[in-house]
């Protein structure tokens, strides 16, 4: 049971729930840049939230189904054309979609956002390292999809109500709004331990100025271009653990937000961190996009994240129940 990769897309990787627990060996957690959209794609096909699925960046792959399967697309609105025999149609997103063997799914560009997630019922049976299928390019663990790859997955049973066109999807879908919203809004930042080492105008600039996402941003880190930030004096720092969302300030003055494939330790000043509740929003920004920040207290950031995790868990459970009992 396979999906055949005809074109790999710009950067398509297998991601699951990541591999936390190995940072003491310098091995980071990796995992989906936009965790909620990854989890919801899985829930829509009845998978566990942390099942292996495809993370698609900016330009999608072309895949041929070698068997019947149920798929779901979430995240950035990506063009998704399906060809099966004489039929041509757009694959709807945010809902499970049954496609017949032989269907050709051509994923293209994104109208907005930067990352889409494609899950397959049963989960991708992908190569696994240290208990996780998550590719971590920066760490040298796995690789991006390439033309000719075959992705293993399970055969899906034929759903009731299959129409004459040999395709099926339910009339309902998840409302994407809470999980993907391209409208610009400030991201929330918690001040870091070296925030006070910024000079006064840089402290103001972090929250008042506009930054642009640099073109060299990737799964390791997002570089923010703007008026460079300055410290009042150089800090002599030694390497300390860092995490997803840490905002570091290298000497050149352009802040870097650490993303999923970040090194486990870092020695630059930690001026701030992006509130985890807003990291999926950041992960959907494209190079060149404008970014602004507003300050939030650590406790408030924690409460927002707990609320988001609960909402996500409840929604995923409800969707999964609906899909698996249908």
């Amino acid at each position: 049971m396979t999906l055949e990769v005809l074109k790999p897309g710009l950067l398509t990787t297998v991601q699951d729930g990541g591999r936390p627990g190995l940072a003491c060996f310098g091995i980071g957690g990796s995992g989906a840049m936009d965790g909620p959209c990854h989890a919801l794609a899985n829930a829509l096909v009845g998978n566990r939230s942390d099942a292996a699925a495809l993370e698609i960046s900016l330009l999608g792959p072309t895949l041929r189904m070698q068997h019947d399967c149920v798929l779901a697309l979430t995240g950035a609105p990506i063009s998704a054309r399906v060809e099966h025999a004489a039929n041509r149609f757009d694959m709807p997103r945010w809902r499970p979609v049954f496609l017949r063997a032989g269907s050709l799914l051509s994923l293209g560009g994104m109208a907005s956002g930067a990352r889409s997630y494609l899950a397959v019922a049963g989960g991708l049976q992908a190569a696994s390292w240290m208990g996780s299928a998550s590719v971590d390019l920066h760490a040298g663990i796995g690789r991006a999809l390439a033309a000719g790859d075959e992705l293993l997955c399970k055969r899906s049973p034929q759903p009731n109500g299959l129409n004459e066109d040999q395709r099926w999807w339910p009339s309902w879908s998840i409302n994407p709004k809470p999980w993907f919203d391209p409208a610009p809004r400030p991201l929330r930042l918690v001040a870091g331990s070296h925030f006070d080492a910024l000079d006064e105008s840089s402290r103001r600039a972090l929250f008042e100025n506009e930054f642009r996402l640099s073109a060299d941003s990737n799964r390791v880190g997002f570089r923010l271009l703007g008026r460079p930030l300055k410290l009042t004096a150089g800090l002599e720092l030694i390497s300390e653990p860092v995490s997803f969302g840490t905002v570091q300030l290298p000497p050149a003055g352009d802040p870097i937000v650490l993303m999923r494939e970040h090194p486990t330790t870092g020695g630059y000043p930690r001026i701030a961190r992006v509130a985890a509740v807003d990291l999926p929003v950041l992960a959907q920004r494209q190079p060149g996009d404008a970014l602004g920040f507003e300050r939030i207290a650590a406790d408030a950031a924690e409460q927002l994240l707990i609320r988001q995790l609960r909402t996500l868990q409840e929604l995923a459970a409800a969707v999964r129940a609906r899909v698996t009992t249908a």
Partner: peptide, 18 residues
């Protein structure tokens, strides 16, 4: 408690928020 990450002079500790 999910993991401990020793560094030169500090220790990182990842925990289960929920």
């Amino acid at each position: 408690l999910i993991e401990l990450v020793p560094a030169y002079a500090s220790l990182g500790l990842r925990y289960d928020l929920v």
